[in-house]
């Protein structure tokens, strides 16, 4: 075999190792969430669905279910908070982000390049800096930390993500269509409703989905600005991990994994098809 043949063979082996590195740890969680060993969760001891049963509050053989009831209720509350925050924050930031993207792309004004640079700031800002800045801000204003402070906090950085996704879509768009619409006598609002909006809609939906996922997953900023009874799912799991690792975390993690992979695949698939 020639030297370059060996080299490309080596590269392929490396590629497989690369994907193993990315996916093996995730697969491990899924596999061991069905492990029946209650003492050491990393030694396989037969198949069970008990951990899933536990987190959904059904009686199971393995755990003292009396001990677990409270925790299940907290888990549900955390899931509900996460969904609520993600829904509100992603909707608001989709509107704001799209508005800025449209203004920057369609109008010439003095602060245009400022806006364009400024929209990257919240993304670049390290999470912890934004988190504690928001904490100081809310506390010094005397605001009670709650689910609403989390929603506001998430919007500050989600707007940037929506802005970038929508801007990319507008850049791909043919602006002659808007001109044609104006030439044919449509007023600006009609042009926006009938021409611009349908054209940028895939970008808006994609940006909103991205914002939703990022909001669901945010840990650092939420950690600082969540009130006592407004824990979200990632903060709840972080707390569980710090108290000690229990096998039911595997089951929760697996469900989250399936959920986020489904949402992300749907989003990426839609984007690929629309192109």
């Amino acid at each position: 075999m020639t030297r370059s043949g060996i080299l490309s063979r080596l590269l392929s082996v490396y590629g497989l190792l690369f994907f193993a590195f990315i996916y093996a740890p995730i697969l491990l969680i899924v596999v061991f969430s069905f492990n029946a060993n209650p003492v050491n969760m990393m030694i396989w001891d037969g198949f069970t669905l008990d951990w899933y049963r536990t987190i959904f509050g059904f009686p199971s053989r393995l755990t003292e279910s009396t001990l677990y009831v409270e925790s299940t209720r907290q888990l549900y509350a955390a899931v509900r908070n996460s969904l609520l925050v993600a829904l509100v924050a992603s909707s608001v930031s989709t509107i704001f982000g799209t508005a800025i993207a449209l203004a920057v792309a369609r109008y010439r004004f003095r602060l245009r390049s400022f806006y364009r640079a400024f929209m990257f700031m919240p993304m670049i800002m390290p999470d912890i800096v934004l988190g504690i800045a928001l904490l100081i801000f809310f506390v010094s204003l005397g605001a009670q930390l709650s689910i609403y402070t989390i929603m506001i906090g998430h919007c500050t950085f989600l707007i940037s993500y929506v802005f970038i996704v929508v801007s990319a879509r507008i850049a791909d768009m043919d602006d002659k269509l808007e001109e044609a619409s104006a030439d044919l006598g449509a007023n600006p609002w009609q042009t926006f409703r009938r021409v611009t909006l349908p054209l940028i809609l895939p970008g808006v939906v994609g940006g909103g989905l991205l914002a939703f996922i990022i909001s669901m997953d945010d840990l650092v900023i939420t950690y600082f600005i969540a009130g006592v009874d407004s824990t979200t799912l990632p903060v709840f799991i972080y707390g569980m991990l710090r108290r000690g690792i229990k096998p039911e975390i595997n089951a929760i993690a697996t469900i989250m994994l399936v959920f986020s992979i489904l949402v992300a695949s749907a989003g990426l698939y839609l984007r690929a098809r629309r192109k």
Partner: peptide, 30 residues
Amino acid sequence: FLITLPFFVSLIVRLFAWVLLLRPTGFINQ
């Protein structure tokens, strides 16, 4: 697509995987 996918998987879940792998009673040590 396969490389971007983990970006959408919860950060805490991905880190939890490494806690399970690296602990004294974790997968690698076992």
